[in-house]
């Protein structure tokens, strides 16, 4: 019989963590970090959507490449009227399709998944307040969306700067770099607020996502129909503003105002139309954000309270 030796002694007495309990950094950060981690965990879908969201920027690279080639072949007089870089950027910025899907991926389940699994109860029994919880959830959508919009825009602008000549580019479009921070924050902020509000009132992430898709598309369509119906009775600027009076419209319109250019594509020989008025679009974006956050705040609680 072989001697296997004495089994290890299991110390089952309670040894608990007794160190300090304060960490630097905001209390909402663990919640935001966890939310981002959960979004990035949906690897295939997330990275595929992120890759597709680069398509409009790939088109810019292509246009810049064509621009440099035609310049070499024919000199400064090009055979087509190429759009200016801010117009190209404005065009790419308005491409919302894949970005919107990333919003759904990052935000639909944000609070809805917690509602479904009663996780709010356990989160709010920890040393965080309702505000920390809300900020954490908001940040988990905002930071993902900001990165998704900012990274391709910044990368392509850097490429454009080198392609068009750094000195010339900085003289003409130098202010675009700080502007990119602002315009990347616009869709991230608006989507995070509205999506959070919808997610908070649902228990199923899919339902929350579908509701946002419905609101988003219906509103866009409604604004365009109203603008078309009032075509003859409104001024050109007003008509354009009504056309932009939706969630995506306000995001695009505000972004175009910050960039200072309307979208124009490669073979588009028409002059870019007038920018929409930014004041009503900003007011709409603020109202949407406030409503979204207020809806989320009203719904966040650790327990379901039975109403009389």
């Amino acid at each position: 019989m072989s001697d296997t030796g004495a089994p290890p002694i299991a110390d089952l007495s309670y040894r608990n963590y007794d160190g300090p309990k304060s960490v630097r950094g905001p209390r909402w950060w663990p919640i935001a970090r966890n939310g981002i981690r959960l979004t990035l965990r949906k690897k295939a879908v997330f990275w595929a959507l992120f890759a597709f969201s680069w398509l409009p920027y790939v088109m810019i690279v292509f246009q810049l490449f064509i621009s440099s080639v035609t310049e070499n072949v024919r000199g400064p007089e090009r055979f087509i009227d190429l759009p200016k870089y801010p117009e190209m950027l404005s065009n790419a910025y308005g491409s919302w399709f894949f970005v919107f899907f990333i919003v759904l991926l990052a935000g639909a389940g944000s609070i809805a998944a917690d509602n479904r699994s009663n996780a709010q109860q356990i989160y709010l029994s920890k040393a965080i307040t309702k505000r920390d919880y809300l900020i954490g959830k908001w940040m988990s959508i905002f930071l993902v969306m900001f990165a998704v919009v900012f990274i391709p825009m910044f990368s392509v602008t850097c490429y454009a700067a080198f392609n068009l000549g750094l000195g010339d580019f900085m003289r003409q479009y130098g202010t675009l770099f700080p502007k990119i921070f602002v315009i990347a924050a616009i869709p991230a902020t608006v989507h995070a607020c509205v999506m959070l509000g919808i997610s908070a009132w649902n228990k199923a992430p899919t339902i929350a996502g579908l509701i946002y898709v419905g609101i988003f598309l219906a509103w866009n369509l409604f604004a365009q129909i109203v603008a078309a119906l009032l075509h003859d009775s409104l001024s050109r600027e007003m008509r354009r503003t009504v056309d932009y009076f939706s969630i995506q419209g306000s995001i695009s319109g505000l972004g175009q105002n910050v960039i200072g250019a309307m979208p124009r594509q490669f073979f588009d020989r028409h002059l870019p139309p007038q920018l929409p008025a930014w004041q009503p679009l900003l007011a709409l974006a603020i109202v949407a954000c406030v409503l979204g956050l207020a809806a989320a705040r009203a719904r966040i609680r650790a327990v379901d309270v039975v109403k009389s």
Binding site: Y17, G19, P20, S22, V23, P30
Partner: peptide
């Protein structure tokens, strides 16, 4: 995650 929310420092997190 719950330990982080309970303010356990990151250095002590794994052992706690």
């Amino acid at each position: 995650l719950m330990a982080r929310l309970s303010r356990v420092p990151i250095n002590d997190l794994a052992s706690a």
